[in-house]
Design a protein around this nucleic acid. Sequence first.
DNA 1: TCCTGTTTAGTTGGAG
DNA 2: CTCCAACTAAACAGGA
Length: 304
Amino acid sequence: MPRPGKNSYSDQKPPYSYISLTAMAIQSSSEKMLPLSEIYKFIMDRFPYYRENTQRWQNSLRHNLSFNDCFIKIPRRPDQPGKGSFWALHPDCGDMFENGSFLRRRKRFKVHRSEHLSQQQQQQTKLGLASSETAPGMGRLPQFQPYGVNGPQTTGFKHPFAIENIIGRDYKSMMASGLPLASVMHHLGYPVPSQISNMVGSMWPHVGVIDSMAPMPVSPDYGPFGVPMKSICHPGSQTMPAVPVPIKPTVSLGSISSMSGPGALPGNPIQICSPSASSLQLDQTRSVSTEGKTNSLHSVLVHS
DNA sequence: TCCTGTTTAGTTGGAG
DNA sequence: CTCCAACTAAACAGGA
């Protein structure tokens, strides 16, 4: 094993899947969505490994964006000229990863096709798009819902940046007290855009200050990619979802108001809608069981 | 022409 | 050993 400071870990392949890397990039943006080129840039800025063989990994990354329903494509608005669409994370795509493993998710996030039609319409509305702008490629657009409203309890999924992931038990106690989510969120001071980068930074310390888009410094005192791997994989005795989870799980309510989370952000069109998610549990359960669409023939049968 | 996005196919490796 | 997620390669279409 190469040692930090010698042949820098930064040249090694990061212990993250493309999905993780892409999620990091997306979450790093203030809008919580990025065009493909910016995702490339983010990854190359922070992981020198990916400054080579770009054709290979970028192809894989594009494949992941298309293949995984945890990524959603958001068309550019007329006032956002440029090539390609924006990519965002599905609000319910959290808790996909095995604890401590950035390499392998516990299950693949999948949106059931039956949701897509209504989702498409709703998303168009949320984005302020005219119906005439509905593109054929939007068929995969999933249904958005506010973080935490129905998600963790009813779906089993916890968004990486769901409020309960961010504030842990305190959130749960507040919710248990009967406070509506909105109140909790407000009480907690959600969101504070200027603090988002710090929050993300605490989730992915190796990424550093996200919004700066600055290349990640690599310290020999840290493990690969600028972060002690222990802090990622074994955060003390705390159990925590694997990937995009606050490294500081125990936060007092008093300090929460000064803390922020990338969940439930304003300005992100994907989060302002409030669709019914009553069918999500069944859909996702089924979806999970039918994953591996290219690898398992039998899944096709279940899908139909 | 290049970039973006989709899809198919095959391989690899971890988990159960 | 099987299942499945991750990865890779490649073909293809469409748009800027």
